[in-house]
Amino acid sequence: MEFIEFLNYGFVQRAVIAGSFIAVLCSILGMFLVLRRLSLIGDGLAHVTFGGVALGLLFKVSPLYASIPVVLLGGYGILKLMERARLYGDAAIGIVSAAGIALGVLIASIAGGFNVDLFSYLFGNILAVSREEVALSAVMSLTVLTVIGLFYHELISVTFDEDLAKVSGIKTKTVNTILVVLTAVTVVLAMRLVGVMLVSALLILPAVSAFQAARSFKSAILLSSAFGVLSVLAGIFISFSWNLPAGATIVLLNIGIFCAMFLFNRIRVIR
């Protein structure tokens, strides 16, 4: 099947639009998370999403809407554990992640066990994205990208060195809160794309691939976004053509891009 013919399907168009928005969002936000050694926050919050989805299914509320407040609460919990309990990021993420999964399993058990809906959120299905979800993805992605644009300099400064940023007059606690809130919203949006289990891959892989070749922060943003969108579009096409799970295909394509960029960088250094 040719790519243009493939784009005639309505569900493919929806997948391409929602996927492109979320890919750009994850790719840019992921850069800040990776550089701040908070890569696994996506994974941790995705596990919290699992709890939110289970809660939504239990109370017959849209899992997407039910997840947003739950994940924001999880993000707030990670921040406070780091600030107040002085835990390292990985330990704070581990605690909140375990709580999210435990909550999800408990609720699923109360509701009478796992069902097909819950698994669709665990592994994602971008080809089943609804019109409403496309609109929500577009609006939320544009909102998050606008916030990143407004706080771009502050985010870079805090990512470079938190102490230096603070002595430059940047309110680092506010910037950290913004970063966690943006990540929470992004994780919920990305959940339909690649699923709870693989969402952190979309935050980490395009960013680390871009770092192999980027010569400046701006070029890293462009490269990361390009890798994210490329993997999502190619992933949708391949999964539809060969009847493969879309989420896993997108993640494996991203790993392929990372390997290629890593080799490219090695060869460049040797020369």
Partner: peptide, 20 residues
């Protein structure tokens, strides 16, 4: 908290002092 992978140029880092 500086990461060795930080993709900023020397010029970008020095300009942070002004942009703040």
């Amino acid at each position: 908290s500086f990461s060795p992978y930080f993709p900023a140029t020397v010029e970008e880092v020095v300009s942070m002092g002004l942009l703040s």
